[in-house]
Design a protein around this nucleic acid. Structure first.
Lengths: 209, 209, 209, 209
DNA sequence: AATGAATGAGGTTTCATTCAT
DNA sequence: TATGAATGAAACCTCATTCAT
């Protein structure tokens, strides 16, 4: 039905090929999470995957493609996780709560992956226009929040938000989630439930009429 | 109490030595801000400083020391900027407002420096835990907010905050500020005044009794 | 006399085997001609042949054997083309004319192949003298010219040529032909007829009594 | 007087810098001459120069720049050698003789260098327009011969040459010289004097009225 | 007979660091 | 103090070759 949504460089990939790529991406994520972006060389990734360096080059055109794949898979997984949960809600207030809850749950369940994407994210600025992905991505990630806010305002359930102030709110929520990721990396024993409850409270209060 | 926070190689440093180091740190900041952490090699920094690469190695034991110096100077500048402004306030509500306002003002005035520190922060994972500094740093930066919150609760002006929920609030505020930094890097024409006003509003509401 | 010039791995080769090898050699020639010797990797050749890299390794012991095959096929094709045309001539003067004419015609008709062989020729230096072939080859190619010159002198139709000076003449003619190949590669619209006429004139005059 | 003729990337180069570059270029030439273009890796060149690989990268932006330098130095040396010798001649006939003689002498005295340039030459075709140098170079090298021919025709000392036929003659002479280089590489004991005499004779006869 | 997958050596290049001057 | 020169490790990538299927 909604095929061909994906960029196109999908060509035809054998099952085994896809599995191998997935495995390598997996290892790349682990490696970035464990040793940091800077130290995550192809050699290091290969070592952890117990394969030769050449295998990575065999399956990915270059390092950039591998890293992009991390971001792409993240985005797909994220969207499949978040979207249905939000759509299941009726009121904007519930949507916002679920947005926060499901994002934090997603982070907790995919900590390394999310962390890796954040690590990559800041690199986008550097590149010479090549990694526009980052920016588009950010917009795509903010949009759902802005939509919820707009809906809430429209239904008279949220306090008034001008367009720019809705964006500030959206960014603040997004930053809270990404910041939570970093905190969870630093302190794996963090009480996620509690953290979630608190964030929900904060943004519930701060959007209330 | 707070001795030995600073590396120790403070020993005796001539005026000229200090000036040289400051100049190099300055250039390192600019370089990171402009080309990103990954591309900020000593060679690149030296080129921008119009000095030879060797000079950097002469004044800093190694690259790490230079990067740490960026964080140290940042922290000192930040504290000198923020602390007096907060101390000038009477009520926790005002303190919180001023904390947010002065932080955003500080970011806007020292955008490159703040950005550089954030860049460093996220790359700081090393196998041998060498860059513990960054983490300590984070604690030191959260403390003032937690103190304000505690005070506000104690005076009955803020809603109830348990210790962990105060921390979540503190992190959320901190993340909002750091996130603002990134947004300002991406969009230099951002209306800082407005953004500040919005953040103050958000956190004013969400701490209110 | 001229046995064992060919490597020996001729053994028994099935028809299909020979066809496959021919196809690969063909593609190797095209590849060298189009992307140059340096870029003509087995991968590139395989891609153009629309076969897998492994097939090449299956049919040829190694890359060197494939490249040698290019030279061998060239030599055979060249000889079959040139020899009968010369033998059909009566006088040395005519022979020389036909030698030049047919060589240039051969080049024009097999430009890529001739070019590939020249490319190989110049790269042929190896520490272990493995590609002696090329040198032998050159001798074999010079011989017909030297024979024509000797005949012409013997019949009193050409000016006197000592053995060494006949060799210089032969080399000069040969170099003119190979140089023509390069020029034709650079400028495909070259007027071959005219070029041929000029070369014939030059060497007709310069051998005349 | 005639400064600034050189491309511009000359900037300011210290004496020692120039010496080092010259030494490296020297070694690169030797290496190409001895092991062939294909095997002449930076590692191999460095090994022969008894320096670390990094030194080459320190003095040359990349391999291409090193190789170009070989061609540039060749061209300068060649021109300084040939031009005055030709200009000292009065008649076109003498000029042509001297052109051939001095070119062969130059080749014999700089055999490795000339050979290296020829090796490089054929590679130019490959690159994607980058190494236009080769083509320009060739034109620059043919021009003097064409000028001599034109002069000889104009003075009525040479037989008639149309523009295209003069070019064929020029190419033939040039090819004879380059071919001589290859032959001399293969057979270092070649009698250069004799070879020179023969070539002079050939082209003297073939240009005569 | 053919292929896709994997390997590992080797190539170019970058870079933090050292050192003689 | 400062510099340019040099180093060598390590990064990314290419490629001829091998092998199980």
């Amino acid at each position: 039905m909604c095929k061909k949504n994906i960029p196109t460089n999908q060509k035809q990939m054998s099952f085994i090929e896809k599995a191998r790529r997935a495995q390598i991406v997996e290892c790349a994520i682990e490696t970035i999470a464990e040793v940091g972006y800077t130290q995550a060389s192809l050699g290091e990734i290969a070592k952890r995957a117990k394969i030769s360096k050449g295998v990575i080059s065999y399956h990915f055109a270059n390092k950039e493609e591998l890293l992009e794949q991390i971001a792409i898979e993240y985005y797909i997984a994220w969207q499949s996780y978040i979207a249905p949960r939000i759509e299941a809600q009726k009121s904007p207030k519930e949507m916002l709560r679920v947005y926060i809850e499901s994002n934090l749950a997603f982070v907790a369940e995919n900590l390394q992956h999310v962390f890796a994407v954040i690590e990559l994210g800041s690199k986008k600025i550097t590149a010479d226009g090549k990694l526009q992905f980052a920016a588009d991505h950010d917009e795509a990630i903010l949009l759902p929040i802005e939509n919820i806010l707009a809906l809430g305002v429209h239904e008279g359930l949220f306090r008034e938000f001008t367009k720019p102030s809705a964006r500030v709110m959206a960014l603040t929520i997004r930053n809270a989630i990404d910041g939570f990721t970093m905190e969870l990396m630093r302190k794996p024993h963090l009480d996620v439930q509690e953290y979630t409850r608190e964030l929900v409270t904060i943004f519930d209060i701060s959007t209330k009429k």
